[in-house]
Simulated assay, not measured.
Amino acid sequence: MRLSHPTRAAMKPKTTSLPPLFRQTVMDAPSFTGGPPTPQALRDDPTSPPSSAFLPDDEPQHRYRTIWLSDVHLGTSGCQAPYLLDFLRHNDSEYLYLVGDIIDGWQLKKGWFWPQAHNDVVQKVLRKARKGTQVFYIPGNHDESARQFCDHAFGDIQIREEAFHTTLAGKRLWVVHGDLFDGVIQHAKWLAYVGDSLYTLILLLNRWFNRIRARLGFQYWSLSQYLKHQVKNAVNFISQFEKVMTDEARRRGCDGVVCGHIHKAEIREIDGVLYCNDGDWVESLSALVETFEGELKVIYWTVLRSPEGTTLSRAPARVAA
């Protein structure tokens, strides 16, 4: 089902119990005690942001009209959940789109990995939905089992195969994960699984690499993203993916597209159609936001937040919408 502008009055989705993937992760997970990770716990994990990078309370410091997040990959060791939790605590919005690969079902089928910080992220999103944020969840290939529940809602979260969002400036944006327009996923899924295993290995190396950087006093830097962008075939694939997505958005009568899938945050026009990718939370640690002035921006959370918890002077990518 396609939506025009998402509002509570526009549609009353069927309410259902949690999908199996979410029941397993949220309800049947080992019992957790206590609240969010403590500063000491964060210090004990060199891959987590320094404890001084977090503000002392949960009061949002920035409010946006819309936030788009994707490719979180909860359930994997590569997920940077403490950074995402920090982002969710200090940024609020009227609309929140979860644009696929939020929970990594592929990896959870291989082995259980669900630390406290991952549970905290899920609970934080549920809390935002209860407090009035309109949350839309568009599954991707790694959480594709949730697609059977499209056009239903669990709790206050609405599940959609795709969505259509209208900005304050009147631009109609098609919101979709993007895997259905990836030829490898659609025609050689076995190759996608092989690539996912290799990618997981690279992320493991990235984790150890950043442990060393943290001990030397350097900020988080994605080795995996650097290597990926140096490979010519990967660069060509990204360019082709962006062109396919904007062509499809144009065919659907939209002014632009918001997607994820390829873990590369971007805002740019391609042949007159706006292409927006909200990035990921295993490499770039980025989100796409719409301000109340009608501006679209890519936020890189490790750049925007200084060790002292203040906003850096470097401006994020942006475009009027």
Rank of each mutant, 00 (worst) to 15 (best):
L84R: 06
S224W: 01
S222I: 03
E293F: 10
E266D: 12
T133H: 03
N236V: 07
L21A: 06
I267T: 03
S222C: 10
K228W: 00
S224M: 07
H142F: 11
G155R: 03
E242Q: 15
A188G: 03
F292A: 07
H90G: 03
P115K: 06
L198A: 12
L74I: 06
W208S: 04
D156M: 07
K228G: 12
L274P: 01
A117Q: 13
S17L: 06
E308S: 14
D104H: 07
L216Y: 04
N141W: 03
R213E: 04
R318E: 08
A287M: 05
F22L: 14
P46G: 06
S224A: 15
E162H: 10
P20Y: 02
R207I: 04
I212S: 11
V298S: 01
L98M: 09
T310D: 12
G170R: 05
D151R: 07
A146I: 15
R89A: 10
E295P: 00
I202W: 12
L288P: 01
S197A: 15
S93V: 03
F164P: 01
L55Y: 12
P46A: 06
H142M: 04
S52H: 12
F209V: 01
T66N: 09
D255E: 15
T200I: 06
D57W: 11
A249V: 05
V122W: 14
K12E: 11
P82C: 09
P50I: 13
G253T: 09
A265V: 05
D104W: 04
K232T: 08
I102K: 02
S93N: 02
